[in-house]
Design a protein around this nucleic acid. Sequence first.
DNA 1: GTCTATATAGGGATAGAC
DNA 2: GTCTATCCCTATATAGAC
Lengths: 213, 213
Amino acid sequence: MGPSIARGTRERILEVAEAFLGERGYNGTRLHHIAERVGVQKASLFHYFPSKEELYRAVLEHGVGDSERTITRALESRGTPLERVCQLVESWIELVAAHPQRLKILLRQSLGDAPPGYQTPDHDRLVALVVGFLTEGQEAKVFPPVDALATVLGVIGMVAFFFTSAPVLAPSWCGDPSSADAVERVKRHVTDVMHRCLAGGGEAGTGRRPAVA
Amino acid sequence: MGPSIARGTRERILEVAEAFLGERGYNGTRLHHIAERVGVQKASLFHYFPSKEELYRAVLEHGVGDSERTITRALESRGTPLERVCQLVESWIELVAAHPQRLKILLRQSLGDAPPGYQTPDHDRLVALVVGFLTEGQEAKVFPPVDALATVLGVIGMVAFFFTSAPVLAPSWCGDPSSADAVERVKRHVTDVMHRCLAGGGEAGTGRRPAVA
DNA sequence: GTCTATATAGGGATAGAC
DNA sequence: GTCTATCCCTATATAGAC
């Protein structure tokens, strides 16, 4: 994180744009509104960014790197493999709670809300990092034989849903998903699920269902 | 499902619109494109729907009701409570796989991609139905004391992510999420997780973590 | 570097013939 | 009920003064 005060106009534009892109999406965001909130004329935006699409790309790059650092750091931490997985989950949840807009932008991207012709980058490398950790644990018989890739993607899906869609589709879930209470509840639930799914070692887990129904 | 052949123009418009709204979103969908794919002039759309917004609402209503029927039917089925939960999960996954666009539209809605001023309807009643089932099971000591609401929303989030975002953000996940293989894999994983989280009765589950880290 | 003014295009919506 | 033609607004982007 850079200095949080006395930012230049370019940084303020990026910040406001990130908020709008998260809240309204690429197609729904008006340069007009960004300029207004920054407190500048619309034409001035084109002094810093040649087009709306380039502004979009700049916002994306601006938010990249945090996730990767969080993941590698957590996997290298001390503790049992299960503790490290939970450490990773909790760190990532905090990251998401701190920057909900970034996750929303990624989700929108995956749904196709991006500049025309924009190639959505994949995140296979990052996912593979965690999947590899789980697989190694399974080979060492410390994790049960669950579907490792599905487990990782499932956690991402749960957390993403808790912080973006759930508050809207099921208001009974929580008021402000970024509140300390909500963050704590998500952490507790996800780590609880991880314990239930990854504890018990290499033998068939607690309640693995017998066969196809 | 109505007759699938010799549909009227209105039905064809609804069908094509559903596809576009799922794929491009409300703001990204051009009436021009809908008309083109239907094989009709743009102005003709206004003979059937007074505005883009009304077309959007019609598409939504057209896809409502299936989910509710699926849920109530599964919860009233035979079997142990856990079997009924898994039955519900599998039925719902099939429904999602059969109509991925509908889920995408709902997700987009929750992200705010809807007509200006549109009030996204909540689904609290439907969620509460399943949560109630879990809570009763917990009071009867057949389910462990997990966070029931979080469990339900977590499953929704996982499945939603598997079928919409995961194929784009992590292409290693699967090629076509609606393929029989992919559907089977999702079913297996989610019911596996349900077994691990809901089996074992009312005592503290397998690996419930001791306290806050 | 920021402004006012304007060019240009695209898309939602309407009019009216057939 | 479907078409052609057109209106009109909005939004991106540019030109050029200060």
